[in-house]
């Protein structure tokens, strides 16, 4: 265990589980992860917003030499997803069995998956991953 996953998971679980960000009450700009102040209006009046999880693939990469703890999952696919609300999110791409089909622009849907297992004794980390809709 290299970092304090318990605290990190607990702090981030709402945004990771529910895809919760926020939306500026003035200019209606969406944010994920959530922010304290809207960078466009400089105001702090933002409402919590649950993203639908629908989006499209902008770009992706494939990682063969994975970090410790991810060996079973190699190769890992990471991508930039643009949610239908216009916000871009970095996410692991799951269910890739043929990466020739990972063409930028394809539709994606955020699904609930296990993100990390801290060995055989530590906590499990859950959250969203992007599933290509192909």
């Amino acid at each position: 265990m290299s970092r304090n996953l318990v605290a990190e998971n607990w702090r981030l679980e709402r945004s990771r589980y529910l895809l919760v960000g926020n939306k500026c009450t003035e200019c209606e700009k969406y944010y994920f992860p959530n922010v304290q102040i809207c960078t466009d209006c400089n105001i702090s009046k933002l409402d919590e917003y649950v993203f639908s999880g629908k989006g499209k693939l902008i770009e992706w990469t494939k990682i063969y030499e994975v970090a410790k703890g991810f060996e079973l999952f190699a190769p890992l696919y990471y991508g930039i997803i643009e949610l239908e609300e216009g916000v871009r999110v970095a996410a692991q791409i799951t269910e890739v069995t043929d990466d020739t089909k990972l063409i930028p622009g394809i539709k994606t849907q955020m699904v609930f998956r296990k993100l990390f297992e801290d060995g055989s004794q530590g906590v499990l980390t859950y959250g969203f991953k992007a599933e290509p809709q192909i």
Binding site: L72, F73, T94, F112, K114
Partner: peptide
Amino acid sequence: PALDEDTITISVMAVR
């Protein structure tokens, strides 16, 4: 199940 699926993730998908 996929490698990143277990009883918790499958339950969440069914509940949604």
